[in-house]
Nucleic acid binder design. Structure first.
Lengths: 144, 144
DNA sequence: CTCATAAAAGATAACCTTATCTTATATAGG
DNA sequence: CCTATATAAGATAAGGTTATCTTTTATGAG
């Protein structure tokens, strides 16, 4: 569905957001550890999130990654867009370049319905809402 | 979502099924042309479908690919299983190795719902039903 | 200003998917 | 039995994603 990079990105953003009220800056190393991802690759993904203003960062000593208030409210579809682009939510299940109501593939209608639901779900879910479930301990970001 | 190979596979199966009542055998070349896919790669994909008994084939002159009656009724999830495996319908959106009701990721519940709907849709849609829409001209397999 | 620290940027490698090409195998017909 | 034909199987290549490592840049503290 979405790429591995994008999964790391969403996990990272959720973790950073979960620490937003503590006013701390998190290092790549700590983030990678807390989301169970390779550190170097996590750094790359965080670079992209920062460039898209989804998370913020500061270089140098006492630097690191953090979320500003307005960033907390961003929907996770923004992360998907930054890393993978939005083609997941638009492309044809059967791989036709142009699959529309006027020129549909045999699965067009049944798939479009699910695709739209999925998109809506990604549009309506904010980073902070997912971070909440982390803080309350009702969800996890690390593997068992 | 599903791989490019799998998309070619489903398109191939639909096309072969749409010719089932004409009792003809279709060459790789013709199938590839009709579904707008690279011939050599289409051949590879058809090999897998044949090995999984989703389509049938006969070598030699007047040989080619065709669908038997019982194969027409197969659900397209069988094709996904043959080419990609069923992990699309089971794996965690955020990439956790074990994401369950007991140890959920922050998106577990909202995603599980869509994943199950998608699976059901692939289980309930048969190859022949998609082939019908091709025959009636209400859907297409080729790019504009 | 200098130094230590942490992210940014760039280069490179490993791996998997996609794609092609060549050789082997089966089969129908003369 | 021989030949032409079409799939099966195997080897190889091209491309994209994932992953790591090295160098550069920014920044806070002394």
């Amino acid at each position: 569905m979405i790429s591995k990079s994008c999964k790391y990105a969403i996990r990272s953003a959720i973790y950073i957001a979960s620490k937003a009220d503590e006013n701390v800056k998190l290092s790549v190393k700590e983030i990678a550890k807390e989301i169970d991802a390779p550190p170097a690759f996590t750094g790359k993904v965080l670079q992209i999130l920062n460039k898209h203003r989804i998370v913020s960062s500061l270089k140098g000593p006492y630097g690191g990654f953090f979320c500003e208030k307005n960033q907390l409210k961003l929907p996770i579809i923004n992360i998907v867009n930054a890393i993978d682009g939005l083609s997941v939510f638009t492309e044809c299940v059967l791989g036709l370049h142009e699959c529309t109501d006027a020129h549909p593939c045999p699965m067009h209608y049944q798939h479009a319905e699910m695709r739209d639901k999925m998109r809506k779900s990604f549009e309506e879910t904010t980073i902070v809402s997912l971070a909440e479930s982390l803080k309350t301990g009702s969800a996890y970001l690390t593997n068992l």
